[in-house]
């Protein structure tokens, strides 16, 4: 049951574009490929409804800058950002700039396709205020003060060591808090944790 609209893939790596095209096609999605954010923005006025999947690190104009430019246009296409593994600060920044989600390369096809399908169906825009967000907010509320500090540190992209230094406690202790945070937030990975934190309204500009 293909969703409406095209997937606009922006990546400077030809193999990434080609393989994404292949993957999306195998899932019944139609893609249009752009080798740079610049060529995408050039084509933007004539583009129909759809969803953007863009790499974050690109020469000339990167994913974050693309998000800023898109804010200035009246076209509001949902945008999913692809980041490298562990690029938490970039991902957080992208979410602040209005990306609906971020996925780490290499990615699970189900999650990518699921996110794209959701974006195309327009559900993403209604995310805030829905039941999921309320649930996540209550998980955040259940954290102790120290756990909350650790969560803030992780979402800011800090390492255990740096968080430990900020609060003057041992990295070993941070590990324990971190494990508690992951459990309480029901997150299976650090990127999921960040995603939850964002959905739970933790990020303020």
């Amino acid at each position: 049951m293909p969703a409406e609209g095209l997937v606009y893939v922006i990546d400077d790596d030809p193999a990434m574009r080609d393989s994404l095209d292949f993957l999306l096609e195998s899932a019944g999605l139609k893609a249009r490929l752009f080798e740079s954010a610049v060529s995408f923005l050039d084509a933007l006025p004539e583009l129909g409804p759809g969803c953007i999947v863009s790499d974050v690190r690109m020469p000339d104009l990167d994913g974050l800058e693309l998000l800023r430019r898109l804010r200035e246009t009246n076209k509001s296409l949902p945008i999913i950002i692809m980041t490298g593994h562990g690029d938490i600060p970039l991902a957080v920044e992208a979410m602040k700039l209005g990306a609906i989600d971020f996925i780490e390369k290499p990615f699970e096809d189900d999650r990518l396709i699921g996110t794209i399908t959701t974006a195309l169906s327009g559900v993403a825009q209604r995310h805030k205020g829905d039941a999921v967000a309320a649930d996540i907010a209550s998980r955040i509320a259940s954290l102790s003060q120290r756990e909350r500090q650790v969560l803030d540190g992780l979402v800011a992209g800090l390492s255990n060591k740096l968080i430990a230094r900020d609060y003057d406690i041992s990295p070993r202790t941070i590990e324990v808090y971190r494990a508690n945070v992951m459990t309480k937030m029901q997150a299976s990975s650090i990127s999921e944790l960040v995603r939850f934190a964002i959905r739970g309204g933790l990020l303020k500009d």
């Binding site: 790596d13 193999a15 990434m16 393989s19 994404l20 292949f22 993957l23 290499p106």
Partner: peptide, 12 residues
């Protein structure tokens, strides 16, 4: 990049 591409080709 190549790993993600390989993954995409295989998943597809």
């Amino acid at each position: 990049q190549p790993l993600a591409a390989i993954s995409n080709y295989l998943k597809g």
